[in-house]
Each structure stands twice: as structure tokens, then as C-alpha cells.
């Protein structure tokens, strides 16, 4: 792997983290109330949908959708749904509303839209970086959220506000990269 590809991978995980820095799929991150281990599993499932979706979306965009750009969003969402259905079967999880809301999110669609404009190698590195970064962000966020819940938080800040403040701190940390 050459240095620039490694930097693309690292950027997807840290500096350009899809959930924290780009707000893509941030609802899955903020709405997840489980512990760090379960959050890592859920993040892994989302990554398992994101990466193959981007791999399928790239040739479709470059060989078919360039002639019909108005179909891009619709086709990409359909691809993500299909991949999510396959992943749900492989993971032996029901393909219900909860699973769809977790995996068919802004991170998956944003990744397909962004990587479709790149070269294939860079697109795949970005996809892997974004997927791993999303899973890690889910786990770290859940771990921090668990610790804060034990502290005394003012009533108005319990729930979503404190979750957003934790995300703000994570974002500030990633800013340094």
C-alpha cells in the first residue's frame, strides 16, 4: 500500500470521520443507547453495509448512471437496501425497521455519492476508512456516553443535549488530525 492510499484510509477513520466530522449517519450514533461492545457490533454491521454498497455503486455510477444522473440517489438507496438485506440475513438479524434505520443511513449514501467521483482504488480505501471510522466512532461514543450517565447532569441536559456535547468533544479531538 503506498503512502497516499494509507493517508486516505487514515483520513476516513480520523480527520474525515463520516459520523463525527461530516454528520453522516449521526442519528445512528446519537440514538444508540447500548454499551461499547454492542455499539462496536452495530457499527460493524453498518460498515458491512457501507463498504460493499460503495463497491457496487462505483461501477454503476461510472458505467451506467453518468448517462442518467437524476437516478443516482434512488439507485444508490436501492443498492444500500439490498446490501442491508443480505447483511441482515448473514448476521441472522431480522430485516426490520430498526435494522434499516441503523444501516441505511446518511453514512452509507454519503459514501456511495462521494466515492463514485473518485478512482476505484481511492474509492475503496475511502470506503474501508469510512466504515472502520464509523464503527470506531460508535464504540468510542457509546463508551463515553456510559461514563457520563453516571455523573450528575443537569436535568435539561440529560439525554440528547449531553450526547451532542460528547460528540462535540470527540469532534474537537479529531480536529487535531
Amino acid at each position: 500500500m503506498n503512502q497516499s492510499m494509507f493517508l486516505v484510509l487514515l483520513a476516513g477513520i480520523l480527520a474525515d470521520n463520516y459520523a463525527i466530522q461530516n454528520f453522516l449517519g449521526v442519528e445512528s450514533l446519537l440514538g444508540n443507547g447500548s454499551g461499547a461492545k454492542k455499539a462496536l457490533k452495530l457499527g460493524g454491521l453498518t460498515a458491512a453495509v457501507m463498504i460493499p454498497s460503495a463497491a457496487i455503486a462505483w461501477p454503476l455510477q461510472n458505467y451506467v448512471l453518468n448517462n442518467a444522473p437524476y437516478l443516482q440517489t434512488l439507485v444508490f438507496v436501492a443498492i444500500i437496501l439490498l446490501v442491508a438485506a443480505v447483511v441482515s440475513k448473514a448476521a441472522k438479524r431480522p430485516f426490520d425497521e430498526g435494522f434499516v434505520l441503523l444501516t441505511v443511513n446518511g453514512a452509507a449514501l454519503g459514501l456511495c455519492l462521494t466515492t463514485a467521483q473518485m478512482g476505484f482504488g481511492e474509492a475503496m480505501m475511502t470506503a474501508i476508512g469510512a466504515g472502520v471510522g464509523f464503527a470506531l466512532a460508535m464504540a468510542v461514543f457509546a463508551s463515553l456516553r456510559e461514563r457520563v450517565e453516571d455523573d450528575k447532569v443537569p436535568a435539561a441536559f440529560r439525554g440528547l443535549p449531553v450526547s451532542l456535547l460528547i460528540a462535540a468533544m470527540m469532534s474537537l479531538v479529531l480536529f487535531a488530525f
Binding site: 463525527i20 466530522q21 461530516n22 454528520f23 436535568a155 435539561a156 441536559f157 440529560r158 439525554g159 440528547l160 443535549p161 449531553v162 451532542l164 456535547l165 460528540a167 462535540a168 468533544m169 469532534s171 474537537l172 480536529f175
Partner: peptide, 17 residues
Amino acid sequence: APGAYIALAMAAAVVAA
């Protein structure tokens, strides 16, 4: 990005209050 989270957190806290 950090400012977006902080501003929305404040708005959410006002809504909760």
C-alpha cells in the same frame, strides 16, 4: 463541526427545559 454540536445541544437543552 464542534460548533454545530454545541449549538444544537443548547437548542435541545432549551427544548427539554
